[in-house]
Design a protein around this nucleic acid. Structure first.
Length: 261
DNA sequence: ATGGCGTTAGAGTAACGA
């Protein structure tokens, strides 16, 4: 089965791209971030007409996540609080988490806060959010042997995931505290980076709209698939599809696809 | 050093993203 993650930067602005890409990529499940739309305005029928089941958690203007699946998903839930309860109360307003079970695999679709810059309140929010993520995933692990955590993490795990890492220790998405939080919330729980099973470097997933970032391949790898131990042996491929980034009026992110046996 | 581009909201800019 093929599972993709893609930050579309507004599902309504990217509707044509998402439809076109769904048809050509033939993924079983597409995990979308930054839908930027309240649930009642989500363009559901477009995907229903294409034969997909849609599960959404959105809000006005910002954030928003969705699961678009060929088969119905089981046990879908949204937000951290559905799993960890009151501890996540401060993080429920922003819609950044949706999860469902496909063929026995619990798939978690995340839109990790950006953080703005290191002196911002949003940076503290990002680190706090990642702390709750750890408990959320630990709790899921008690019920599910096989978990895939994917999404826009807004963190480049290592310097080789940035086109030019010079000076990036004070930069959002690559500062040491963010990387340490990723270590605690993902790698310390036994998850592994699907991309690293196939690629040593490159594989950028985001290029800045400004300064012709894509044309000059000034990219960052910040969208990821993380696999529980049992899924590692089933991983057939992990690849960025940079093509839609070159289309007219693109999202600034490209989709990343994993194939599991 | 700053802003650069794109989206949303909503009517001129401002917030936000990364």
């Amino acid at each position: 089965m093929k599972i993709a993650t893609w930050n579309v930067n507004s599902i309504r602005s990217r509707l044509d791209h998402v439809q076109t890409w769904l048809k050509s990529s033939e993924v079983d499940l597409l995990c979308v971030q930054e839908t930027k739309v309240v649930d009642e305005d989500f363009p559901r029928s477009v995907f229903t007409d294409l034969g997909y089941h849609t599960y959404i958690s959105g809000q006005k203007s910002y954030n928003g996540v969705a699961l678009i699946s060929r088969s119905p998903l089981e046990a879908v839930n949204t937000g951290f609080a559905a799993v960890v309860g009151d501890e996540a109360a401060d993080y429920e307003a922003q819609k950044r988490v949706i999860s469902g079970v496909l063929n026995g695999v619990r798939v978690v679709n995340l839109y990790v806060p950006n953080g703005s810059d290191l002196s911002s309140d949003k940076y503290e929010y990002k680190l706090g959010w990642l702390g709750v993520l750890r408990n959320y995933l630990k709790t899921l692990q008690t019920d599910h042997a096989e978990i895939l955590v994917c999404g826009d993490f807004n963190i480049a795990p290592e310097d080789r995931d940035i086109y030019d890492p010079k000076g990036k220790e004070t930069h959002i998405m690559s500062s040491p505290p963010e990387r340490e939080a990723l270590q605690r919330s993902i790698f310390d729980l036994g998850f592994s980076d699907a991309c690293r099973q196939f690629h040593e470097d490159g594989q950028f997933t985001w290029w800045d709209y400004r300064t012709a970032g894509f044309q000059r391949n000034r990219g960052w790898r910040i969208d990821h698939h993380y696999l529980s131990e049992g899924l590692r042996d089933r991983l057939q491929s992990c690849a960025v599809d940079a093509e839609p980034r070159g289309w007219e009026k693109p999202s600034d992110h490209a989709p990343v696809v994993v194939e599991l046996a």
